[in-house]
C-alpha cells in the first residue's frame, strides 16, 4: 500500500481504541470469564448453576413471557396504527410521526414513574376502572403490570420501524383487488400481510431484543423484586449481597446466545417469506 492510501488509515486508531476498550473488551471478558469457576479454573460450573437453578430459570421464563407478550401486542397495535396513519392528511401525519418519535424516548425511570401515577395502587385509571367494576385490583408490579408498561414503550418503536415499510403497499393494489372482487379481509390476508411480512418479522426481533434487554423500567417499577434476567445480572455485579461476576457472565452469554439463535431463525423466515422485488 502506498503512502497516499496509508495515511487516511490513521484516523481509525483513536476510534478503534475507544470502541475496543468500551465495547469489545467487556464482551470478551464476559465470554471468557463465564467459563471460569470460583477457583479460577476452566469449567462449565457457572452454566450448570444457571441451568439447574429454578430461580434463574424463572428469570428467563419471566423475561421471555413479558418480552414476547409486549412484542406481539406492540407489533399488532403498531400495524393497525400504521395502516390508519397512512390515510391521514400530510400535516396531521407529520405531527403524529413527530409525536411517535418523542414518545419513543419516553422509557426507563420516567416512564415507570408515570405508570405508577396512572396505574399504581391509587392511580387515576386504577380508581376509574375499580369504580366501574372492571377490575378488583391491578398489579402494576407483577407480570401483568410489566407487560402493559413494556407494551407501552414498544408501540412507538414498532411504529417508527414499521411505518416506512408500509410505503411498499401501493394504493392501486387495494383498488385492483377490490375490482377483482376481493374483500377487505382477503386483501389483507393474501396481499398486504405477505408483502409486509419481512418488515413485520424484522421489527418483531428488534422489539423482542429490546424487551429482553430492558432493565431500568422493571428495576424502577419493582425495585428489583421481580425476577428478570437483566435484574439478576445487575444484582450479581452490583447488588447488596456477595458478588458473582462470573455467574453474571454466564447468564449474559446464555441471553446473548438465545438472541443470536432467534435472529438466525428470523433471518431464515425472512428469506422464505414473500418478496416483492
Amino acid at each position: 500500500m502506498n503512502n497516499r492510501l496509508c495515511r487516511p488509515f490513521l484516523v481509525f486508531i483513536p476510534f478503534f481504541i475507544i470502541l475496543g476498550l468500551f465495547q469489545l473488551a467487556p464482551l470478551v471478558w464476559v465470554v471468557i470469564n463465564s467459563f471460569i469457576n470460583n477457583d479460577g479454573h476452566w469449567s462449565l460450573a457457572n452454566y450448570q448453576q444457571v441451568v439447574s437453578s429454578p430461580f434463574y430459570r424463572q428469570a428467563f421464563t419471566h423475561s421471555f413471557l413479558v418480552s414476547i407478550f409486549s412484542a406481539v401486542a406492540g407489533l399488532l397495535i403498531a400495524t393497525i396504527g400504521c395502516a390508519s396513519l397512512r390515510h391521514m392528511q400530510g400535516k396531521i401525519r407529520n405531527i403524529m410521526i413527530a409525536f411517535t418519535n418523542m414518545t419513543s424516548n419516553f422509557a426507563g425511570v420516567p416512564l415507570a414513574f408515570a405508570f405508577i401515577i396512572v396505574l399504581g395502587f391509587n392511580g387515576a385509571i386504577t380508581l376509574i376502572l375499580r369504580k366501574w367494576g372492571w377490575i378488583n385490583s391491578f398489579d402494576l408490579y407483577g407480570t401483568q403490570g410489566l407487560s402493559v408498561v413494556y407494551t407501552y414503550f414498544q408501540i412507538p418503536l414498532a411504529m417508527l420501524l414499521l411505518y416506512p415499510a408500509f410505503d411498499a403497499l401501493k394504493v392501486d393494489w387495494e383498488e385492483a383487488a377490490s375490482l377483482l372482487g376481493a374483500s377487505h379481509r382477503y386483501y389483507w390476508q393474501h396481499i398486504a400481510l405477505p408483502v409486509l411480512s419481512p418488515a413485520l418479522l424484522g421489527t418483531f426481533i428488534i422489539l423482542l431484543a429490546n424487551g429482553l434487554g430492558t432493565y431500568a423500567t422493571a428495576y424502577t417499577l419493582t425495585s428489583g423484586n421481580y425476577n428478570l434476567v437483566t435484574v439478576r445480572i445487575a444484582n450479581l455485579v452490583a447488588g447488596d449481597l456477595f458478588l458473582q461476576p462470573n455467574l453474571a457472565a454466564a447468564i449474559s452469554v446464555i441471553l446473548m446466545s438465545l438472541l443470536i439463535f432467534i435472529t438466525c431463525v428470523n433471518q431464515w423466515l425472512v428469506k422464505r417469506s414473500y418478496h416483492v422485488y
Binding site: V28, N33, G213, Y215, A249, L255
Partner: peptide, 21 residues
Amino acid sequence: ILTLLPFAIPPVVSSVGLLQL
C-alpha cells in the same frame, strides 16, 4: 456491523465486563 454491536449487547451485559475491567 460494528455500529450495531452496542445495540445487540444489552447495557447490563456490557456493565458486567466493564465493572471488572
